[in-house]
Design a protein around this nucleic acid. Sequence first.
DNA 1: TCATAAGCGAGACGGTACGTCTCGTCTTGGG
DNA 2: CCCAAGACGAGACGTACCGTCTCGCTTATGA
Lengths: 205, 205, 205, 205
Amino acid sequence: MDAPIGTPGAQKRPRHPRSARAHNAVLTATSALMREDGIPAITIDRIAGRSGVSTATIYKHWPCKAAIIAEAFGRDTAMAVELPDTGRPIDDLVTYAADLLTYYTSSEGALFGQLLAACATEPQAAPYFHEFFLTPRRTALEPCWERAAEAGLTRPGVDAATATDVLMGPLVFRLLSGHGSLAHDEGRKLVEYALHGLLTPAPQP
Amino acid sequence: MDAPIGTPGAQKRPRHPRSARAHNAVLTATSALMREDGIPAITIDRIAGRSGVSTATIYKHWPCKAAIIAEAFGRDTAMAVELPDTGRPIDDLVTYAADLLTYYTSSEGALFGQLLAACATEPQAAPYFHEFFLTPRRTALEPCWERAAEAGLTRPGVDAATATDVLMGPLVFRLLSGHGSLAHDEGRKLVEYALHGLLTPAPQP
Amino acid sequence: MDAPIGTPGAQKRPRHPRSARAHNAVLTATSALMREDGIPAITIDRIAGRSGVSTATIYKHWPCKAAIIAEAFGRDTAMAVELPDTGRPIDDLVTYAADLLTYYTSSEGALFGQLLAACATEPQAAPYFHEFFLTPRRTALEPCWERAAEAGLTRPGVDAATATDVLMGPLVFRLLSGHGSLAHDEGRKLVEYALHGLLTPAPQP
Amino acid sequence: MDAPIGTPGAQKRPRHPRSARAHNAVLTATSALMREDGIPAITIDRIAGRSGVSTATIYKHWPCKAAIIAEAFGRDTAMAVELPDTGRPIDDLVTYAADLLTYYTSSEGALFGQLLAACATEPQAAPYFHEFFLTPRRTALEPCWERAAEAGLTRPGVDAATATDVLMGPLVFRLLSGHGSLAHDEGRKLVEYALHGLLTPAPQP
DNA sequence: TCATAAGCGAGACGGTACGTCTCGTCTTGGG
DNA sequence: CCCAAGACGAGACGTACCGTCTCGCTTATGA
C-alpha cells in the first residue's frame, strides 16, 4: 500500500480525497528513508521525491521536517514495546524495563535518539513528538503502574509520568551522548538502579 | 578579553603563536553568540566575523560547528556546578543534585540540551562533548562518590559514571523532550527517586 | 531595464516563466559588472547580488562563470562590428577589417581577450563562447565572403571560417600577449598582410 | 637532478648559495606538474610540495604563478622549434611554419595556449612570458627573415616581429577558442595563407 | 672565535570565491 | 478546487587557493 502516487495504473477514480492519501504516502516514505539512511539524511525533497507528494503539499500538512518524522516514527513503533499484564505488576514492570533496554540497544533506539535530538532543535516538532510517541507510551504504562501502586509496591507519590522519565532518562542520555554503552550489564545496571529508586524496598529484579 | 584579532595596538611581538590566539578568540566569540541568540542561530561565518578568525582557520581547528560549541560550552561551564566537600558525602551529593537541577532549569540548561542534541546529530562532535563537558564533570564527581562508597552509603557496584547518568538522565530527557517541567517539585522528584535508587536505604533527603 | 527582481510594483502576474526573467537579469547584471570592473573582478556572488537572482539558480542556468560572461558578452556585442554591403566585396572586407581593428583596440577588445583566455581555462565555457560570439560573427561574414569568392577575388579554397581566423588571429595574439601594440600602423599592417594572404593579387588597400 | 631539497645525504657543503638551488627546483617541479595535469591544475602549494621550496621563498623569486610557469615553460621549450638554415630562406621559412604547426598540434601546443591565457589573466606575468618565450623565438626568426628580406622575397616593410604574429596568430586563435581543428589541411591552410600574405608572389610552399 | 645578518623550510593565518545543499514559498496548469 | 511539478530567493556549508607573516634553523661573513 501507499505506493508512490503517480505510478501509472492502480487507483484512478478516488482522486479528490487526496489529503489522506498524500498524508499516508509521506509517512510511509519517511519511514523508509529513516530506516535506510537515518534521520539526519532525510530532507523534504527526498520525502517529496519518494512519496510523489510535492513539497508544497507537505508543508500544508506539517510545519517542519521533524514533525513528519515524529508522526511517522510514532505510527510505526506504536506497539514496539508492549506492556505485559501477568497480574504481578512488579514482574510486568521488570519485563517492561528489560524490553525498553532491548529497544534502545536496537537500531530503532538509535532512531529514537535522533528524533529526540531533532525535537530539541526544532521546537515546533515537540507537540508531534508528544502526541505520536510519548503520550501513547505513557498511557500504556499507566494501568500497570496503577496496579503496582494499589498493591503498595511503588514509592508513594510517584506517578506514571515521573516513573517513565526516571526509567528512560538514563538510557536516553547514554544513547544521545554516545558515551558508555547500553550493552550487557552496563545498560542493565542503569535500569536496575532507576527501578530501585521508584519502588519500595525489595524489588530484586 | 580576547578581543577580535586585528584590533590595532596591543600585542605586536608574539605573533606566531597564533594558533592559541585564534583558538581562544573562536571559543570566546562562540560563547557570546551562544548566549545572545542560542545555538541554532550560530553559523561558522558569524563565529568568523565575531572572532576575526577566518572560516578556513576554524575548520583547521575543529571538524564541525558542534565541536566548537561543545568546547566553548565546556570551557565556560567548567565550574558551573561545584561539588561541595563537607565531610558528609550524602549531604554533598544531595546538594550537588539540587545544584544540577537548578542548572538545568536555567538558560544554561537549555543550551546544554541543544548542545546534546547537536552532538547526536553530528557524530564528529561527540568526542569534543565528552572531553570538554562530560569527562570533567564525571571526574569532579568521582572523589565525592568514592567517599560515599567507602562510607558504605552507596549501593554496591555503582560507579561514579553510572551514578552520573542515572542522576542526570531524567533531567536531560525532560529538557530535550520539552514535556513536563523541571521546575519546583517536578524536577526535585526526579532527582530524589534517582538518588534513592543509587544509595542504600535511609537517605531520605 | 531588467531591474533586479524583487523590486516591488511592476510585473506581478507573469511570475512562473521566471526562468527567462532570471536568465535576462543575470546577463544584464553581468554586462554591467564587466564594463565597470573588468572580467577578473566578476564573482558569482556579485552577479547574484546585482541581479537579484540567487547563486543556486544561476548554477542551474550556466555551468560556470565564464559561460555567463560569454553569453552576456556575445549578446551585447552582437552588432558591434557590422559588415557593410556596398556591392564591392573587397571594399566591404577592407572596411570590415578596419572596423575589427578598431574594435580590438577599444576597451571592448580587452574584454574579448580576457574572455577568450577564460574560455581556454574553463573548457565548459567554450561552447557558450562559440554559440554566442564566434558563430554569429562567422555567419555574418559568410555572405560577404561568398560574394567576393564569386567575383573571383579570393584565393581559391579559402572558406569564410578560415578567413576569419587568419584575419583575427594576429590581432588576438597581440591582444593576449600584450606585446607590441595594435595602435596605428602596427595593427593596420597585421590586417593588411593577413588580407593580402587571403585574396588574389592586387587588392592593395 | 634537482631532487627535492631536504632529502638527506647529498650536497652538504655548498649550502648558502641556496637561491639558485631553490630557483631550479621550483622550475623543475613546475615543468613536471605542467605535463602531468595541465596548467590550470597548478597551484603554488603543489609547486612548493613537489619542489621542497616553501611558498614564502617562491614569492621572493616570482610575483605570481603565471610568471613561474612562463619561465619554466620557456626554459624547457627553448629549442622546441629550430630554424633551419639551408641557404634558401624561403624553404627555411616554409619548414619553420610547418614545424610551428606540428608544435601547436602537440600537447606542448596546448600548454602554450594555457600559458598565453594565463598571461592575459595575470598581467604581472606578461614580462616573463616575453622574456622567456616570445623574445627568444622572435630573435631566432630574425636572421632567417633578414636573409629572406635581403633576397627580396618578403613583402617590403614586414619585420620579423610582425611576421611572427601573422604566422602564429591564426594558430593560437584556433588553439584557444577550441573551434575548428589544427589537424591536417585545416592547419596547413592557415599557415599557407598567412605566409602568402607575408611574402612576395610565388612562394608556392 | 664568535656574533650578526641573511636565506630558508615550515606552515599558520586572513581573506575571499567557489559550487552545493536545503529550506520554505510561490506559480502554473491539469484533472 | 486540489494538487504534482518544480523554479525560485535566501543563505549556510565546507573546501580551495592566494599571498603574507612568523618562527627557528642553518650558513656566511666581519669583528
